[in-house]
């Protein structure tokens, strides 16, 4: 039989005064999977992560992590979690290595064992040569890697990552994705939030799309695209202010259209054919692009808004 889910949430709600940051969500995360919360800023992703991390008591609903209740067994749950918060929160008064060792001590891991693991983890995130350095001079990508190494000091079976690559340059993101993928290979369950669809597509087996504190869709990246979007998308750019008018002229091309402030999106199974038709209508754009559908399109379809504004 399959093991019990690692995380179970039913009707989970988090309110701050009158504002419902999380307005009743149901989630199940299985052991070994890589699960994502995708959504724009303010969708309730971080609030959900904080509840799972046992640093924010749920207002109502049921939440179980490792089958335990975060309200009464927070300490036990946190002992088995790795947490990579949105802001790095590294200890600026300590060196890179000390950051890992001291953090391990909070878990009551013997000091010698902390040092052994710290060396191993710094090797894993390719920062062995910076072990004795203070945290401040490190680049954003390096700090992120230290934070990930630190979160692994207690050998967690569940790793929570809140926007792991926000603010990093493309190269640093790829290094990080590679490390996270290796962790997944080792059987670590990853739960992450992101507002980048490429990140979700890279890392997540399964994800939920959140908006306004609710889950608006759930599935694998591929199945979400199949369900909510077409195979290809034709992007058309017209002179500023003429999008509406142009879109009207080509309204019957493709399955569906989205008119954004800066471009018109035409959803279709064959982008090139649609573009050809657009040209025949004398509605030639300034520039055009045919691409595969992405989670961004799913989100746009479900909420009428783009993920990153």
């Amino acid at each position: 039989m399959a093991a019990a889910p690692l995380i179970t949430a039913r009707g989970l709600v988090k309110r701050f005064g009158d504002f419902a940051a999380v307005a009743g969500i149901d989630v199940e995360v299985e052991s070994g999977e890589s699960f994502g919360f995708l959504g724009p800023n303010g969708a309730g992703k971080s609030s959900t992560m904080r509840m799972i991390g046992c640093v924010s008591p749920p207002t109502s609903g049921e939440l179980r992590i490792f089958g335990l209740d975060p309200v009464t067994d927070g300490r036990e749950i946190r002992a088995r979690l790795g947490v990579v918060p949105q802001q790095d929160q590294l200890d600026a008064e300590l060196t890179v290595e000390e950051n890992l060792v001291v953090y391990g001590r909070y878990f009551d891991i013997p000091r010698a064992e902390c040092r052994r693991r710290a060396a191993e983890l710094l090797d894993f995130v390719q920062l062995t040569d910076r072990a004795g350095s203070k945290v401040d001079p490190l680049s954003g990508g390096m700090k992120r890697r230290v934070t990930i190494a630190r979160s692994l000091i207690n050998e967690p079976s569940l790793l929570l990552l809140d926007e792991p690559t926000t603010g990093l340059d493309p190269q640093a993101r790829h290094v990080l994705w590679d490390r996270l993928y290796r962790l997944k290979q080792r059987g670590v369950t990853l739960v992450l939030t992101t507002h980048y669809m490429d990140e979700a597509e890279q890392l997540c087996d399964r994800l939920v799309v959140m908006d306004g504190g609710r889950i608006v869709a759930e599935g694998s990246p591929r199945s979400l695209i199949q369900q909510h979007s077409t195979r290809e998308v034709l992007e058309l750019r017209y002179a500023p202010g003429t999008n509406e008018e142009r879109a009207h002229a080509i309204a019957d091309i493709g399955d569906r259209q989205e008119v954004l402030p800066d471009r018109v999106l035409v959803y279709t199974h064959d982008g090139e054919a649609a573009l050809h038709e657009v040209h025949e209508r004398d509605a030639a754009p300034i520039s055009s692009l045919v691409r595969r559908s992405s989670l961004e399109d799913v989100f746009l379809r479900l909420t009428g808004r783009t993920l990153v504004d």
């Binding site: 640093v55 300490r75 946190r78 947490v83 929160q89």
Partner: peptide, 11 residues
Amino acid sequence: SKLYDSVLATP
């Protein structure tokens, strides 16, 4: 430095 936030994420 948000030190306490990171400490409270542990046991």
